[in-house]
């Protein structure tokens, strides 16, 4: 049972000081699907990026906390105290957050030439396993491993020679299975990461990465935009599988009701001006689809 909890989260653009988040409160438990909706500029994407630790934003107040259960850390070969199960994510680097089980599916995934999918994903999976061990090791043991992250030492075309926890053959099998699940062509494995991918292929790839990294909490930033109906269904299946098979908690940012027909949310939140203005069940999304956001704004400001 993992819980991601945002409390009064405030953040600004680091470079300009422009205030974006003005006190976001949100709680996502594993196994739950939350939809985060709202007009452009309301702070949805910023919320996602701040959770993942994007350096372009500066947190000015509030907290982002991840609480894990014993079951979430069953893979870790170290004695774990109760106190080690709660993490203040704002104190951690993006890669450490990812290692603890936070996943961000990007609205605009980076295109990276020269790094193949298969190499990148295996590197990521092994990095996650390594980093997890390190995070849970006692403080005084940490020094020994601190310099240990330069282990990448061979061709990006062939993958690292040092095998990591998950070897090449084992990983290829895993990747193949996950790609079949998402109805992705095997050839993707040897392509460069997102380079020359269509919009839809990129989104599929984000879900594939989540399927491989098995996060506790996945934040999906407009995973549904730019998808045709077939791919929307593939992607939705992937998201549902994450929830059903891995118990991942999903925070899904979307503009459209459409994907919610396939990925049915337990909770819907409406964001306005950097805050959660209204929360409700799945029916709230339908209302928004019909009526737009103005009525939420009116309701909120009248009440205030």
């Amino acid at each position: 049972m993992a819980t991601l909890e945002l409390k009064n989260l405030q953040a600004q653009v680091a470079e300009t000081g422009e205030e974006i988040l003005r006190g976001v409160d949100l709680e996502v438990n594993n196994g739950e699907i939350h939809a985060l909706m709202g007009p452009n500029g309301s702070g949805k994407s910023t919320t996602a990026k701040v959770i993942a630790g994007h350096p372009a934003y500066e947190v000015t107040g509030g907290s982002v906390r991840l609480t894990l259960s014993e079951a979430d850390v069953a893979d870790i070969d170290v004695d774990i105290d109760e106190a080690d199960l709660t993490w203040d994510l704002l104190d951690l680097e993006p890669n450490e957050r990812a290692a603890l089980g936070i996943f961000l599916a990007f609205q605009y995934p980076a295109e990276i030439e020269g790094v193949t999918m298969v190499n990148f994903l295996r590197q990521a999976l092994n990095a996650k396993l390594d980093e997890r061990e390190e995070l849970f090791e006692d403080e005084d043991e940490e020094g020994a491993d601190a310099e240990d992250d330069s282990g990448y030492d061979t061709s990006p075309m062939e993958g690292p020679a040092d095998d990591g926890d998950v070897g090449v053959a084992e990983f290829q099998q895993l990747l193949k299975e996950k790609m079949e699940l998402l109805d992705m062509d095997e050839k993707f494995a040897e392509r460069y990461l997102n380079a020359g991918f269509s919009g839809g292929e990129k989104k599929q790839n984000e879900v594939l990465q989540a399927a491989i990294l098995e996060p506790s909490i996945a934040v999906l930033d407009e995973i549904d935009s730019g998808l045709d109906i077939d791919r929307l269904q593939d992607v939705s299946e992937g998201i549902n599988a994450l929830r059903d098979e891995q118990g991942t908690g999903i925070l899904q940012i979307t503009h459209y009701q459409r994907i919610l027909d396939y990925v049915e949310p337990d909770h819907v939140h409406v964001m306005l001006d950097g805050k959660i203005a209204k929360s409700g069940g799945a029916e709230l999304a339908e209302e928004l689809e019909d009526e737009g956001y103005d009525w939420v704004r009116e309701e909120v400001y009248e009440a205030a």
């Binding site: 630790g53 350096p55 961000l104 990007f106 996650k128 990294l213």
Partner: peptide
């Protein structure tokens, strides 16, 4: 950021 968000260390 994309790569580090997948648990890969910055280096």
């Amino acid at each position: 950021f994309y790569m580090t968000s997948r648990a890969i260390s910055p280096n």
